[in-house]
Design a protein around this nucleic acid. Structure first.
Lengths: 211, 211
DNA sequence: GCAAAACCGTACCTCAGGTACAGTACCTGC
DNA sequence: GCAGGTACTGTACCTGAGGTACGGTTTTGC
């Protein structure tokens, strides 16, 4: 990794942490360069302006996010062939991952940007929107696979159920941050898991599995 | 209502809308007074500084929020004596209320402030935290009442289930805002309702009601 | 050892937050 | 009808942040 890349990454780490705690407008370039130990000229060497920093941050955040989800549900798929169990195991792994964050989840840039929408141009807002739609598509595919094999106890729109995963994670992050209770997020993910289990799992009284 | 109170309320309406779209630091006093048609001196006559505005805004927001919840679940209680049905009807009413917002939910100050935490002093952060704890206590009481009469299909911590309502609303707001799809929030509230129904409701195969 | 990459230094402009304080229009009770 | 509070306006001024411009310097890779 080149020196420039390393500086840029460090700058972005500092910026992301600051923005998640103070919002975009509340984060000054001055404080970023002070913490990074560079000058203002250095900052503008790496980024055209503050908006480009915002865009690069979101792009990186979304890539990392995708990697984590690929990893978590990839590992889940290795453990079982059944699509329902894959989702349930994946959510369990995700909850454990969130529970392991000792300082709690630092926050989601997608949520920050949505509560700062008027600060950004249309491109950035669209990028944010596309990211959430990509989550929907990812989880929707898993739901569809489940619906091929299991009959849900209630008729649920698969897109809504897919969105519920993102909803619980975004909401759980807010709850954990406000309450300063890191475990709330994993707890909420496990409740979502409980719902999906109840919705699809046959129990002794009700064998819902499709033939 | 005195003239001063009216101006202050108008100023706060403008400020709340702006803060929900641009964050606290991204909202300038200049734009507020321009829209309100007063001068900067007028602003500082009503509020000691920007932080006091933030505090007043949160206090008012929380009061309004409480009024809405009192109203929704109060109406639900009028329709049924059963605690489970009260919660289910209340969530239905809440979803309908959210669906009726033509422009979509404007956002929650609690979430905005949590993603701007470092901009505020300890008092304001504590106020935010207490508000979420008040939601927990409110919903926890409803869950406890349900547990007295119904046996859940799974053992669930009542605090977690109570928090789930706040989580779904906060997460749903973020999802609706990012996707620019106002209906996502009510859809998610209905999914939460579906979970609670599945968790507690006896069906033809499984009579879970306590005797 | 040389060119490109990765910065630093300086100067400057604009705008927003915030302070200070004097002045004024309007209403209200006595 | 006027004293006094309420609800402001007007003016001036300070600081700090975003941003621009551009020339100079160091570091790195080949």
């Amino acid at each position: 990794m080149g020196k420039g890349v390393a500086t840029r990454e460090r700058l972005m780490d500092i910026a992301e942490a600051a923005i998640l705690q103070k919002g975009f407008a509340g984060t000054s370039i001055e404080e970023l360069i002070a913490e990074a130990g560079i000058t203002k000229s250095g900052f503008f060497y790496h980024f055209r302006d503050k908006n480009q920093l915002a865009q690069r941050l979101l792009e990186r955040h979304l890539q990392r996010d995708e990697t984590i989800l690929d990893d978590v549900f990839g590992r889940a798929r290795e453990l079982t062939d059944d699509p329902l169990h894959t989702l349930l195991v994946g959510l369990k792994l995700l909850a454990e991952l969130m529970a392991d964050l000792k300082e709690g989840h630092p926050g989601c840039l997608v949520a920050t940007y949505c509560y700062n929408e008027r600060l950004f141009d249309q491109d950035l807002r669209d990028l944010n929107r596309q990211a959430v739609l990509a989550w929907r598509i990812r989880f929707r595919a898993m739901i569809d696979a489940i619906n091929l094999r299991y009959l849900p106890r209630e008729e649920i729109d698969p897109d809504h159920l897919a969105d519920m995963i993102s909803t619980m994670v975004e909401g759980g992050i807010v709850m954990s941050k406000v309450l300063r209770a890191p475990l709330v997020l994993p707890q909420q993910i496990l409740l979502l898991r409980s719902y999906i289990r109840l919705l699809y799992c046959p129990n002794e009284d009700n064998n819902a599995e499709r033939v």
